[in-house]
Design a protein around this nucleic acid. Structure first.
Lengths: 363, 363
DNA sequence: TTGTACGCGTTATCAT
DNA sequence: ATGATAACGCGTACAA
């Protein structure tokens, strides 16, 4: 079933004569000239059924007919109509990436970018396509209707806040793979997550090992499970080290949030000598503030970030940080979804990816 | 092209009966339970046609029937089937974003991110959805078939290299809006571009005004029209200033390319005292090298970047740069495409957005 | 205002 | 191996 190596000639100039002509010199993009199975069948001198068979690689067709059909397909530049196929097969061969997040946030964070890259990477080896749905509000109206309308066969959700309940509706009609722990109880879905707790433990332990004793954390938005998990890892590490946890300041997973949090932190806890900042983005916002207030890094204050994003390297002081396998995560999510769509619903419901400490100068 | 491992889901394993039962306790996601127009009609006690009318907001329906229908829709949770609707209307209400670019490059560059954000922003106010197609190779095989299969009503292409000719085929069957001058002759399409020449002029003039006399440029990949235009703007400015243009070094629009270009530049043209670097990303790669080799910025060497990306602010020396209205560009492209799809094919074929100099410390 | 009937392009089930 | 033919779910002239 090898596909013809060269791209099909997709000429649209087929004098149909049957229908309306382009108006007033302007080109018309109506696709009513696209060749159909019927046309191919006619040209090849066979029935639609036979054409359909060779298109779908059925083994039971005479080589001669198959050949004639292939010729006709090439000559006409025939391409199966997606809608028609989808209508009867009940499959769209498309999956949606749902991002319940502010647009600028989504595009400003390489964490998301990497995930999409991973998803895209896996999808490229399939014949599925990706539909992007970004909305800071919970799925509703247009988006929900879209997902429910059979336009996609499955959904990948990344970074949804734990409070989004509308996603549970989606989970009931389509297979859903969450990136990051869902935090939603009773939702039938798959989850791929990085070991946030473990990552935070690694980061915090680094601070402890370096001799810090007054350790605080700048956390992500506490409405996200990942933020909660990282705080948890931070706290548990300190406790088992016999240290009293410093304050937890919400930095909202953003640059400005990080800067703000740094100010708050310094005011509330001037004796701080170590900070676990739950994202490099926040760290890049916090560091200037810290430096500005006279803290030398790492001499006076040690910092460990999270993500190993480009920002970690362009900081004034290169950031020691926790590397997440984001691309791998995206790839894994897509892989699971594709597998489920292929009928292998017995895939492990939860996949946890591990993190790794990247040692630089800030701690 | 490599055959997809799980390509055509020729899944003949569709359970024997009409309603394949979920196997071994696993949930089944088959959508055969989704209510149809028929069901709604039955419940509302009207015909399918009437239901269709209220769904599509036809004015000619009796309030009573309309009400009954709406109730039925709500009760059943009816959502129009996308494929069926698309099949008859010949419209998919989806547009594709085609990015003939390396995945990591696409996601690592905020320029692209901003464009997507803009597109998304405009689309949110319509009922169109966005399909993402990223592939470092020219559209072919899967992608071309997808576009030709009626799955989308229009296409937005960003950053295609000028040599991609396969895109012309797309332009023949679907309305296409290019981001960045296409450079393709004879292609019937719309183009939204930033004034690259003008932006480069602004940047270079800044260097001239600051007293630089040995001005070089680190350009983007010369297979891209934008890179060519920026070189052009740089050169013309120098000429009208009576200066002899320094070398043009290709930095490939990437961080490492910028670093490499900086080394080459210093070797070939040590007297350089001003550089127009055609993207902040390249500048962020070049600056460490420049600093490393003992050049003080801006004392010894002045730099002007391009994009005003986050990297411009996190550089060792904050970058004076040229701001592109990227988000606006995406929004405009989407707006044009939507307009064309609505039948207004008389939209201006070329839209040029202007740039603005952001003054910081590097020049 | 409402309903009937046909067609959109494919796939799948029958016969042949 | 091949060809009619019936769905698939919806929009819409046309008729009532």
């Amino acid at each position: 079933m090898a596909q013809a190596p060269d791209a099909p000639a997709l000429d649209a100039e087929r004098g149909g004569g049957t229908t309306a002509a382009p108006r007033s010199g302007e080109r018309s993009f109506t696709r009513h000239t696209a060749p159909t199975l019927e046309a191919v069948a006619a040209l090849a001198g066979v029935s639609r059924a036979t054409v359909s068979r060779v298109v779908n690689g059925s083994p039971k067709v005479h080589p001669d007919s198959a050949d004639a059909v292939r010729k006709a397909i090439a000559a006409l530049g025939y391409v199966p109509n997606r809608a028609a196929r989808s209508l009867v097969s009940q499959q769209s061969h498309a999956i949606a990436l749902v991002v319940p997040e502010d647009t600028t946030r989504f595009f400003g964070d390489v964490y998301f970018a990497s995930i999409v890259a991973g998803i895209n990477d896996r999808l490229e080896q399939s014949d599925y396509v990706l539909t992007l749905m970004i909305a800071d509000h919970a799925p509703q109206g247009k988006m929900l209707r879209y997902l429910a309308g059979g336009a996609v066969d499955g959904v990948v959700v990344v970074s949804h806040h734990t409070s989004d309940t509308s996603l549970t509706q989606v989970g009931q009609m389509l297979p859903v793979v969450f990136g990051g722990r869902s935090g939603l109880a009773g939702v039938d879905c798959w989850v791929v997550d990085v070991d946030n707790v473990g990552g935070a433990v690694t980061a915090t332990q680094r601070l402890v090992d370096r001799g810090c004793t007054n350790i605080a954390t700048i956390s992500g938005s506490l409405s996200m499970q990942s933020a909660l998990d990282r705080v948890e890892g931070w706290r548990s590490t300190l406790e088992s080290a016999g240290l009293t946890p410093g304050p937890v300041v919400d930095g909202d997973y953003s640059v400005v949030g990080g800067a703000r949090a740094a100010r708050t932190l310094l005011d509330r806890y001037p004796e701080v000598d170590g900070v676990f900042i739950a994202s490099d983005l926040m760290a890049s916002g916090a560091m200037p503030v810290l430096l500005d207030r006279g803290r030398r890094i790492p001499e006076d204050l040690k910092i460990v970030g999270y993500d190993d994003s480009p920002a970690a390297q362009t900081c004034e002081v290169p950031l020691t940080t926790v590397r997440q396998p984001s691309v791998e995560m995206g790839r894994e999510m897509a892989d699971i979804l594709l597998d489920v769509l292929a009928g292998h619903t017995d895939r492990e419901r939860t996949t946890v990816l591990t993190t790794r400490l990247v040692e630089r100068e800030s701690a």
